[in-house]
Simulated scan of single mutants.
Amino acid sequence: MTVSVRDLRPDDRADVEQFAHVRHRALPFVLWTPDAVVHHLAHTHPAARVRSLVAVEDGEVIGTAQIGLVHESPEPGQAYLNVYTHPDRTRRGAGGLLVRAAEEYLAAEGATKLFSWVLDEPRNRAFAERRGYRAGRSAHFLRLDLAAGTLPPLQPPAPGVELRTAADYAADPRPLFALDAETTADEPSDVETAPADYEAWLAETWRHPLLDRELTTVAVVAGRPVAFTAAHTDGGTRYVTGMTGTARAFRGRGLAKLVKNASLHRAREAGLTEAFTGNDTGNGAMLAVNKWFGYEVCASEVRHVRELG
Score class of each variant (00 low, 15 high):
A158R: 12
E182T: 00
G254M: 09
P225C: 09
L151K: 07
Y169I: 02
T184N: 07
A135I: 05
G110F: 04
R251N: 08
E296G: 12
G309C: 01
D7K: 03
A249E: 14
R224E: 15
E129A: 15
T64C: 05
H86R: 10
R91Y: 04
G63E: 00
A65W: 05
A203K: 11
A36I: 00
L98R: 05
A196E: 14
A139D: 06
P156I: 06
G223T: 02
E75I: 13
A102W: 00
G282Q: 12
R248S: 13
A185Y: 08
T85N: 12
W32T: 12
N290Y: 13
P156H: 09
F177L: 09
G252R: 07
A262C: 02
F177D: 10
D280K: 04
E182M: 00
A171D: 14
A178N: 08
A139V: 01
R266A: 06
Y239S: 00
V56D: 08
R51K: 10
G235I: 01
G59C: 01
G95D: 07
D190Y: 12
F29V: 05
F276Y: 15
T85L: 11
R213P: 00
H208V: 09
A194D: 12
F115N: 10
A178M: 10
G309N: 03
W201G: 04
K260D: 11
D280E: 14
L151G: 07
T183C: 05
R91E: 10
G77R: 06
G160D: 05
R23H: 13
H232K: 06
P173Y: 05
V297F: 02
L27N: 07
H39Y: 03
R92I: 00
A167I: 08
A288Y: 11
T193W: 10
V305N: 05
G235F: 01
A48R: 15
A219R: 02
G284C: 09
E121P: 05
G160W: 01
W292Y: 11
E199F: 02
Y169D: 03
A148D: 07
A158W: 01
A200S: 13
D12V: 03
A158V: 02
Y169M: 01
Q18E: 15
R266Q: 06
P159K: 08
R137F: 05
R248Q: 13
T150N: 05
H71W: 14
A167D: 15
R49F: 01
T244M: 09
A181P: 08
A194M: 05
A256C: 04
A275T: 12
L202M: 07
H232Q: 11
G110M: 03
H43Q: 12
W117M: 03
H39I: 01
